[in-house]
Deep mutational scan, measured.
Amino acid sequence: GPIITTQVTIPKDLAGSIIGKGGQRIKQIRHESGASIKIDEPLEGSEDRIITITGTQDQIQNAQYLLQNSVKQY
């Protein structure tokens, strides 16, 4: 399918649970989903961080599912 980009906003407090120790968790999510995932640095004074996910519809759905699971375990 076509490559698309979607953005998800997360509270910055949850960023740690998604990134994992030394970036292990986010690497695993990238690997498992096949999507490209970029977590922006939090904006000055903002409570949120923006996650940019790029890939096919399937890859993005996979990545979103894995991201949600990471947050739930936290």
Rank of each mutant, 00 (worst) to 15 (best):
N69H: 07
Y74V: 13
I4G: 01
I53Q: 00
E41C: 05
E41G: 08
Q24A: 12
D48G: 09
I26T: 13
T54I: 07
D48Y: 05
P11V: 03
L66K: 08
G16D: 13
G16C: 08
A63D: 00
G45H: 08
H31Q: 10
A35P: 00
K72E: 15
N62K: 09
S70I: 13
D40H: 06
I4T: 10
S36A: 10
R30H: 11
I53T: 01
N62S: 09
T9L: 02
E44F: 05
P11M: 04
E44T: 07
R30T: 10
Q28T: 11
I37P: 00
D48L: 07
V8K: 13
D40V: 06
L43R: 07
L43N: 14
K12V: 08
D13P: 14
K72A: 14
A35K: 00
K72N: 12
I50S: 13
R25S: 06
P42R: 08
G20L: 07
V71R: 10
G20C: 11
E47R: 06
Y74G: 15
E47G: 10
S36I: 13
K21G: 14
I4M: 03
Q64L: 01
I50W: 03
T9S: 11
L14T: 10
P42D: 06
Y65M: 11
I4N: 14
K12E: 04
G20M: 15
Q61T: 14
A15I: 02
I53L: 09
I4Y: 03
A63S: 04
L14A: 13
S36L: 14
K12S: 11
G20F: 05
G1E: 02
D48W: 03
T6M: 08
G45K: 13
I50M: 15
Q59C: 12
G23F: 07
G22E: 14
T56W: 03
P2S: 15
I18K: 03
L67T: 03
V8F: 03
H31K: 08
I18V: 12
V71C: 10
I19C: 04
A63K: 00
E32S: 10
K38G: 12
R30V: 12
T6F: 01
S33G: 01
R25C: 09
D40S: 06
S33N: 01
E32P: 01
E44I: 12
I51P: 01
T52P: 00
Q68I: 03
V8C: 03
E32Q: 04
Y65R: 13
E44A: 10
L14K: 10
I39D: 04
G55T: 00
I60P: 00
D13G: 09
I10D: 00
T54H: 09
S70M: 14
Q28W: 12
P2L: 11
I26M: 15
K27G: 11
V8G: 02
G23C: 13
S36W: 09
S46P: 03
Q7E: 14
I26C: 13
T6L: 01
I26W: 07
T54V: 09
E41D: 05
K12R: 11
I18T: 05
L14S: 14
I19H: 11
Q57E: 11
T56V: 04
I53V: 08
I10W: 15
I10P: 01
I4S: 06
T56F: 06
D48H: 09
D48M: 07
D58L: 12
I60V: 12
Q73P: 15
Y74F: 15
G45R: 07
K38N: 04
R49E: 05
A63P: 00
P11S: 09
I37F: 06
Q68D: 13
